[in-house]
Amino acid sequence: MKNNIVLGVIGADCHAVGNRILDYAFTEAGFEVINIGVLSSQEDFINAAIETNARAILVSSLYGHGEIDCRGLREKCEEAGLKDILLYAGGNLVVGKQDWESVEKRFKDMGFNRVYAPGTTPQMGIRDLKEDLKIV
C-alpha cells in the first residue's frame, strides 16, 4: 500500500517556505506527498485526501489564525468518511507566545493526533508518522 499523505498550509496563510521543505523531506523519506500548498481550506484538505486515499493530513499554520482555521476539521473528515485518518498540525498555531501545553491540549481536543511546536524538525514528524502508520 502506498503511503499517501496530504500536506498543506491552512486558511488565509501564505507561508510557503516550510511547505516546500516538508514536501522535500517527506518525499525523501519515502512518502507520496500530495502537496495542496498554501491558502488551503479544510475542504481542500479533505477532497485531496479522498481523491488520493491518503492515510494522513498534515496541516501547517504559521500566521496565528490556526485555532480558528482548524476547528471542525476532525468532524468534517468523519462526515466525509475519512474515519481513521491521522491529523497532524504544526507551526506557530496561535497568536503570541502561549504556554505550549495548553496549545497542544486545545488542538488534541479538536481531534488532532499530533501537534508540533514551533521549530520542530521535519525528521521528528517523519519518525512519528512512520510509527503511527506502523512503517518500519
Binding site: G11, A12, D13, C14, L39, Y63, G64, H65, E67, I68, V95, G96
Partner: peptide, 27 residues
C-alpha cells in the same frame, strides 16, 4: 491575514471572538 485576502466576514468573526476571549484572535 483575513483582510489581506478580502475576507471581511471572517474578520468580523475574529473581532467578536477577540472580545469574547479577551485576547487577539487575529494577527
Amino acid at each position: 491575514s483575513y483582510t489581506r485576502q478580502n475576507r471581511y466576514n471572517e474578520c468580523q468573526v475574529g473581532i467578536e471572538e477577540s472580545i469574547k476571549t479577551n485576547r487577539s484572535m487575529l494577527n
